[in-house]
């Protein structure tokens, strides 16, 4: 669906931000991009909808070369939700904030109201319909931003650090939203350094370091490799630590606490 072939990106100030990126993002998968601050994660995702164009190499999305397409055309298929809600909220009401993109993309009047109803309902924003979005709490603003992107039903949803500044309840909601997207066959790309958040999703993981992709594998495999993680300055998920302490290094971990519980209980019974 989205393909990077030997992509290099150089900032206008001369810094090389991406080196030799080869990547295929497949339909229906959950892809997590991890790595320390400044590793090039955000620069990478900005290439998916053409916000940035590669200095060398090529990015194609839905058979379109991002060099030849407008950001608007690409965004219709690939919705990016940025980290800071305050960087996009501008309307006088929640309703108009959701409508903004729908109008930009030229949706018909009936389609707009239909999509709007769905988004407000699904994201539990119905009661704020006419409220100014600036008055919402941090968590509600985040939900509004997600709603305003999912409203146009993009095929790929990209989230940049969705958990930053979000409390436990919001994170639980985010997990539900991602699961809903997966069940609808959408592709989800998450940039995050919140390992405990992405672990239960058991995604495909890309590890970035110094503008390069240094590993690309299933979460279960990536988080076994201590050296790799140290290089990318990432910590292990707690369940991985736990299973290593019990079974020794480089063993597979429980994918969630319920699996772990099953294992412990069955072990307890067999003893």
């Amino acid at each position: 669906m989205i393909e990077f072939s030997s992509v290099e990106y150089r900032h206008p100030n001369g810094v090389l931000a991406l080196r030799n990126i080869d990547l295929k993002i497949r339909k229906g998968e959950v892809l997590a991009i991890v790595g320390e601050n400044g590793a090039g994660k955000t620069t990478l995702i900005k290439h998916t909808n053409g916000l940035l164009k590669p200095s060398k190499g090529k990015v194609t999305a839905f058979d379109m070369d991002t060099n030849d397409e407008s950001v608007a055309n690409l965004s219709r298929k690939i919705g990016i939700i940025f980290q800071n809600p305050d960087h996009q909220i501008f309307s006088e009401s929640v309703e108009n904030e959701v409508k903004f993109a729908l109008k930009n993309f030229g949706f018909k009047e009936e389609a707009i109201s239909e999509r709007l109803e769905w988004a407000l309902n699904f994201f539990d924003l119905e009661r704020y319909r006419t409220t100014s979005p600036m008055l919402l709490s941090g968590g509600e603003k985040k939900r509004l931003c997600i709603a305003s992107v999912l409203a146009w039903d993009p095929d790929v949803v990209v989230m940049d650090e969705p958990t930053v500044g979000q409390d436990f309840i919001q994170k639980e909601r985010l997990i539900k939203i991602i699961q809903m997207l997966v069940s609808k066959g959408k592709t989800v790309v998450i940039v995050s350094h919140d390992i405990e958040f992405i672990w239960p999703l058991q995604p495909r993981v890309i590890v970035m370091c110094g503008g390069k992709i240094i590993a690309d594998n299933k979460a279960g495999k990536i988080f076994q490799e201590r050296e790799l993680l140290n290089k990318a300055r990432i910590v292990k998920p707690q369940l991985q630590e736990l299973s290593e302490k019990i079974h020794g290094e480089s063993s597979g971990a429980f994918s969630n606490i319920y699996d772990a519980k099953q294992w412990v209980i069955s072990k307890l019974k067999s003893d």
Partner: peptide
Amino acid sequence: TSLLDPFT
């Protein structure tokens, strides 16, 4: 630490 990666 909200804006920092886990190592930092």
